[in-house]
Design a protein around this nucleic acid. Structure first.
Length: 715
DNA sequence: CTAGGGTTAG
């Protein structure tokens, strides 16, 4: 019980806000990219990167929402282990606490655990052959396996036992063999036997068996070392048993064993996956204070964590740390950081980082290219994507089928139909990259968003013939395609097939049906679509009926709306609300449409609808459906009218943004919006320099309101 | 997988 865990937890938190990014700039940077990151200017990149507000508080972005407070985060650790002497480490997490009287405790061993070298095994062909025979034998019979162990051609020495443990598979046999050695009682049980067995069990994701073995070690007095703990922790991780991983890490400290760099980075990853960013940073810094030199794997762990959190400043922190520790990123680190840049919404920085990696002489692999192509696709940077693709072919960079599929998805994102078709043909002709369900789905997505029913259906038939499984997303694309083409009979047939095949409709499919429903309204096919939706999500249908009945009060609608949205996946909530508004407008239920928009806004489904500065107010309807956009416009005009009449302060300029219709769902929004403006006789003019933007001056607006009210008074 | 940690698609 030498080192209590409090040495880890009574971490003094340095104030992350005050962390200096400038110190290491004095040195010659190891990566040029670091300069880009620390300078305030973005590298030669269009704007999307700069749009998000920069938050200088590392680890603060998304995690604040997930984790309640720091003390809550630390509670599981603190309640067990925190010494009462340091309560303020928790009560005031932002304080920079340096206790001069207390020497910093070492929390990570400066040296990696030495491996016990076991003597090189002489050629033991017979023994290896014996193991192969064991591996090939029917694994169902335990007794047969144990019986055949009696025929080992060599004495059961330590080395022979290790050779067998290392080469036996699957894990059931390794496990049986370890127990067999133990019952033979001829060999002292060593840690390494358990470690090798645990590794095999980890391969089979057998965490509870690993835990049993660990307890057996404890009972039998066999020492657990860093390799044992890191194997237990990584297996717990593989099985998503993060609390177990933390438990064994704590136990290691309690028994006085210091983690080495491998165990330490493994546990950092555990906290990272739990989204406990503050803890990871403090563990990291505590380790640094112990004299630990983090290696590329640690930086991968940190980079991935910040990427998951969408925390760009955290990613900068990783660069700064690599810089100050003088660790050059390797391919793995580049890959992780590229992906993190994508997740943090920084395509421009990702591009610079990728180019820097190439310049530094590191050749990209499939994962690198997958990450970058995906980023370009999501950013809709078709030029960059095509250029990279050209370089991939020119340099003969490695391709695998994941990369092929990512390229196909990129084509769908940026609308490259012919290129996708060429790729798809390549895949069919290739040896190792035959199109799979994902590839077909990507193609269906492309044809679906083009509204090319013939090609989509041809592909569907091909899949049926070849026996390629179509998943829920494939069906969604197909249904969307048929809906847009108003081919409702075909749509019902496809939906029936999906039900027959046991496809469970998800929220995206329901959203798709909902939008199809809004298109089918007023036609004889409306009932058919409702029939599909009824089978996919009866609650949605009841809600539509409730909304359509004008007798139902706003309060009733509000309650049910809340229920529907709470049950829906986060990323379909806005589309759901958009479609519901469309459905109301199609039935001339204008008041209800406004209520739904109000509810959607109050539940945060339209966070950037209104943007105000002193000089201009902007209505951004780019993520709204046509009906929702028109409703928002009406609402805005009413509000502005009220403000004018009350003679309150107004800005000089008013903007309404519809976008250009580049996005596949936004097509037609611009046109419908313009015609609705005409109908309202609202004083907005289509901007000449900015496409998809409508402008009005304060003067225009005021005179419009006044003339409207005179007109109203006259009638 | 010759005892342990990180990096691949809607």
């Amino acid at each position: 019980m030498a080192t209590p865990l409090s040495s880890i937890v009574d971490v003094y938190f340095t104030d992350t806000k005050r962390r200096s990014f400038t110190n290491s700039c004095k040195q010659k940077p190891l990566t040029k990219f670091f300069i880009h990151c620390t300078s305030s200017q973005a590298p030669s990149t269009p704007t999307p990167d700069n749009k998000k507000k920069n938050n200088n508080n590392i680890g603060s972005n998304k995690n604040k929402k997930k984790n309640t407070s720091l003390s809550d985060q630390l509670a599981p650790l603190a309640s067990k282990t925190l010494s009462s002497a340091t309560p303020f480490a928790i009560s005031n997490p932002k304080s920079t606490w340096v206790n001069p009287t207390k020497a910093k405790r070492i929390v990570v061993s400066p040296e990696r655990q030495k491996r016990v070298l076991y003597s090189p095994t002489p050629h033991l062909k017979d023994l290896k052959l014996f193991v192969h025979k064991l591996n090939d034998s029917d694994s169902s019979s335990e007794s047969e396996f144990l019986a055949s162990l009696e025929e080992i051609p060599r004495p059961l020495t330590r080395e022979n036992a290790l050779l067998i443990l290392n080469s036996l598979k699957p894990w059931q046999k390794t496990h049986l063999f370890l127990n067999w050695i133990r019952t033979q009682n001829s060999l002292p049980m060593e840690t390494i036997f358990y470690n090798v067995t645990m590794k095999s069990l980890r391969f089979g994701k057998q965490f509870s068996l690993i835990e049993d073995l660990a307890h057996q070690m404890i009972d039998d007095g066999v020492e657990l070392d860093n390799i044992t703990y890191s194997t237990i922790i990584s297996c717990a991780k593989k099985c998503n048993l993060f609390d177990k991983a933390v438990h064994w890490f704590e136990r290691m400290y309690k028994t006085g064993l210091m983690p080495d760099e491998v165990t330490y980075s493994a546990i950092l990853d555990v906290y990272a996956r739990l989204g406990k960013v503050e803890e990871v940073i403090s563990l990291y810094e505590r380790g640094r204070a112990s004299g630990w030199k983090p290696d590329p794997i640690t930086f991968s762990v940190l980079g991935k964590m910040f990427g998951e959190a969408g925390d760009y400043d955290g990613i900068r922190y990783v660069f700064q740390e690599m810089e100050s520790v003088r660790v050059q990123p390797n391919l793995g680190v580049y890959n992780t950081l590229l992906e993190a840049m994508g997740k943090a919404g920084k395509p421009g920085f990702a591009r610079s980082l990728f180019e820097e990696m190439i310049e530094s002489g590191i050749a990209p692999n499939e994962k690198t290219l997958t990450a970058v192509i995906k980023i370009y696709g999501k950013a809709r940077w078709s030029r960059d994507a095509l250029e990279l693709w050209r370089r991939m072919k020119e340099n003969g960079w490695p391709m695998d089928f994941i990369l092929y599929n990512t390229l196909l998805n990129m084509c769908a994102d940026v609308g490259l139909v012919e290129e996708a078709e060429a790729l798809f043909r390549d895949m069919k002709q290739s040896e190792h990259c035959k199109p799979d369900s994902w590839s077909y789905t990507a193609m269906l997505n492309i044809y679906g968003s083009q509204g090319d029913v013939d090609r989509a259906m041809k592909l569907f038939e091909e899949m049926c013939k070849l026996g390629v499984e179509l998943n829920v997303m494939g069906f969604t694309c197909l249904i969307q395609c048929l809906g847009r083409a108003m081919e409702f009979d075909g749509l019902v047939r496809v939906f029936d097939i999906s039900v027959e095949r046991g496809i469970k409709p998800d929220d995206r499919l329901c959203g798709c049906l909902l939008s199809v429903l809004s298109m089918s309204q007023g036609s004889k096919d409306e009932e058919k679509v409702i029939g599909c939706l009824q089978r996919a999500n009866p609650k949605l249908v009841s809600f539509i009926q409730l909304v359509e009945d004008e007798k139902n009060s706003f309060e009733t609608v509000k309650e049910e709306f809340k229920g529907i949205m709470t049950n829906a996946a986060v990323d379909v909530r806005r589309p759901f609300c958009n479609c519901l508004i469309d459905i109301c407008r199609n039935k001339d239920l204008l008041e209800r449409a406004h209520e739904l928009l109000y509810l959607g806004t109050s539940y945060g489904l339209y966070p950037s609808l209104h943007n105000k500065t002193d000089k201009e107010w902007c209505l951004d309807v780019r993520s709204l459906s046509v009906g929702a956009a028109l409703t928002a416009l009406e609402e805005w005009m009413w509000t502005l009218t009220k403000i004018v009449k009350r003679e309150e302060k107004l800005p000089e300029l008013f903007l309404a943004q519809t976008g250009t219709g580049a996005h596949k769902f936004a097509q037609g929004l611009n046109i419908s919006f313009a015609s609705h403006l005409r109908k309202l006789a609202a004083p907005f003019r289509q901007s000449e320099e900015k496409v998809g933007c409508f402008i009005a001056t304060r003067e225009d607006l005021v005179s419009w309101v006044l003339s409207n009210s005179t007109a109203a008074a006259a009638t």
